[in-house]
Write a protein that binds this DNA or RNA. Sequence first.
DNA 1: CCCCTCCCTGAACGCTTGTTCACTTTGGTG
DNA 2: CACCAAAGTGAACAAGCGTTCAGGGAGGGG
Lengths: 217, 217
Amino acid sequence: MSKRKIATAEAPPVERDGRPPVEAIRAAAFTQFAERGYPVVTVRDIMKACGLTQGALYNHFKSKDELLHDIIATTQAELERVCQQAVVGAGADPRARLAAFVRAYVMRHCRLRIEALVANREISWLDAERVSDIRRSRRAIRDIVIGILSDGIERGLFDPPDVDGRRELKALAMALLDQWTHVSMWYVPGGPLSEEQMAGLYADMALRAVGAKPATA
Amino acid sequence: MSKRKIATAEAPPVERDGRPPVEAIRAAAFTQFAERGYPVVTVRDIMKACGLTQGALYNHFKSKDELLHDIIATTQAELERVCQQAVVGAGADPRARLAAFVRAYVMRHCRLRIEALVANREISWLDAERVSDIRRSRRAIRDIVIGILSDGIERGLFDPPDVDGRRELKALAMALLDQWTHVSMWYVPGGPLSEEQMAGLYADMALRAVGAKPATA
DNA sequence: CCCCTCCCTGAACGCTTGTTCACTTTGGTG
DNA sequence: CACCAAAGTGAACAAGCGTTCAGGGAGGGG
């Protein structure tokens, strides 16, 4: 018996369009990693998908690891930027800020679901120092959520569930972020719900979950 | 000349306890897969972790693939059973049934987080026919949730968010299940929240999210 | 024309992988 | 004691991996 072949997606011939090769490699790597996972995607797979051969990768990236890190780090950095921008543009009311955050976060995870999927699922293959960099960014995003929650509670606008009398904002934020993040695992672009509708649905659920008082419109 | 070990004295530096080797292999594979992921864990790793050598695996499993499938399938089957049992034991009120479901589901994902983690994260490495088996079970669990939701809505006890006037129960159920499932990704057994407190918190959030009318005690 | 700089090719390298297999060890039974 | 089946060993195998490197060819400036 020989080693089983893991669905080597032989299909896509070449999509290099007119882009510079670095961009083509990045794009090919994104879809391959998203569909089949970093460790089983070979350098040969990636390069064949953009019409090149193995060796050419090393004209643009130091290693397969560095390629993954490059991809994840830029995605994550941009997500963090989007999140920050969403809340500063939403005024002072914690309800509006939460809604704006959820809308931005969910919408992004629907539209760029491949990027989000890779960034969320494949971190573990990076080495320690690189992974800690990404985790810092994730923690920063989580802290934005926690900030909105505690602000809303202080102002008496949120009344989230508590645990034996004490508020567990970290657990609450984690629960919500899990929900928003994993949209990218099952959302299908042509499906029954548009990105905007998803964003609205999730914002609604979030406001209910934290017990937001009805807005004064 | 070969050196031979005379007594059985030399205990392997590993955890095999008294269990039959099949169980030891299963357990070792669980923790290894959970910590490092199926494709990068080698057969040699697993067997060394229970004090055996590579070849011995094939006295108990046909292949590495079959080992993974065995692990995931039994975990998933038991989860499905737990979910069904939880709702039938909770009476007729959709609020009680939803709460019971969430409690059982979250509690299990806290207590058996390693098993849940592997079952949720490593399916993709199974071949088509095996993976469809697991997905069927997942769909069955999702349909339990959808059943509770639509029942509660019919009776006027739930008032979940809608999308442009129509109810999207599938998306709603997915959003909730994502939240409950991924507890296993970050919950730490010795942390600030016990399993029971997590269960309570998540049940509370779920009831809020679906707009449950307050219970009549 | 030559030459330099990019970018690419594809064979080759050393290593690891899942799996097999001839062999030994073990523990129980008559 | 002999005997047997079950279970474990560790070398061996073919295949595949990430990475390297000597070479090729295209394009532009002298």
